[in-house]
């Protein structure tokens, strides 16, 4: 099993490799940018077509933030919307035959680290530095290493959950493809140049692994981010 392909290398600091993941992310950013411009360039009072979808998305994210994090946390809504969009599209891009952006640990770890920083920073801002530090001694001072551990483990489990789900789906899909190719070879004794058995079955699996799992993991990632940050910033 190999990681993402290196598309090109920037000749700086001994060569910075730019991988498939990054290039696919750029495609997603470009697509989102174009879609947003097209939708919001001419907003109408009476919405129609894609504007309804966009408005639905925005209001849904805002409502979710409201429900999960509590009132007065609306400034987190754009970030949650961004992560959900990036994550869902990053998983769904595998339907186009590209490598999923979220099947790279770097991607999910970077988002999880952002969540981690937001959580801790929110905790410090709402509780104050001293009581935030004192929070690690709850309920008894002996629990200090445990508390630190449970905070540090959050980004790891967050990132590996997302990465593990998507990449496991990718690996299974790949195994099934190669298995079907081998089956074709056995049945037709190598007479057929096209692996005909690859037709059909992977599509059904792709609905689960790419569409369902991708969107679900995006949702769970956003949900957990909201819960962590909401809990940390609760007064």
């Amino acid at each position: 099993m190999e990681g993402p392909k290196i598309i090109f290398t920037i000749p700086l600091l001994g060569g910075i490799p730019v991988t498939e993941t990054v290039v696919n992310s750029w495609f997603i950013i470009l697509a989102v940018f174009i879609a947003c411009r097209l939708i919001t360039r001419r907003l109408q009072k009476v919405p129609s077509g894609v504007q309804v979808l966009a408005e639905k998305y925005v209001t849904m994210v805002c409502k979710l933030v409201d429900d999960t994090m509590g009132k007065n946390k609306q400034r987190y809504a754009p970030y949650i919307g961004t992560v959900f969009l990036f994550s869902a599209l990053g998983s769904l891009i595998s339907l186009l035959g590209c490598r999923a952006v979220t099947a790279d640990l770097n991607t999910t770890l970077s988002w999880a680290l952002v969540t981690f920083v937001m959580t801790q920073w929110g905790g410090i801002r709402t509780k104050g530095l001293l009581s935030w530090l004192k929070g690690f001694l709850d309920p008894v001072p002996v629990m200090l290493p445990m508390n630190i551990m449970s905070e540090l483990v959050n980004p790891i489990s967050l990132s590996f959950r997302h990465f593990g789900n998507i990449s496991a789906g990718m690996v299974i899909t790949m195994l099934i493809y190669s298995g079907l190719a081998a089956l074709t070879n056995i049945v037709f004794q190598g007479l057929l140049p096209v692996p005909i058995f690859q037709l059909g079955l992977p599509a059904i699996l792709s609905i689960y692994f790419d569409v369902f799992s991708g969107v679900l993991q995006a949702f769970i990632f956003c949900m957990l981010t909201m819960v962590f940050v909401g809990m940390a910033t609760d007064p």
Partner: peptide, 18 residues
């Protein structure tokens, strides 16, 4: 290819992309 599980420059790129 890079490794299947690795932490490299892509992390920084993904921060920028985010």
């Amino acid at each position: 290819n890079t490794n299947f599980v690795s932490i490299d420059w892509t992390l920084l790129f993904q921060w920028g992309n985010l």
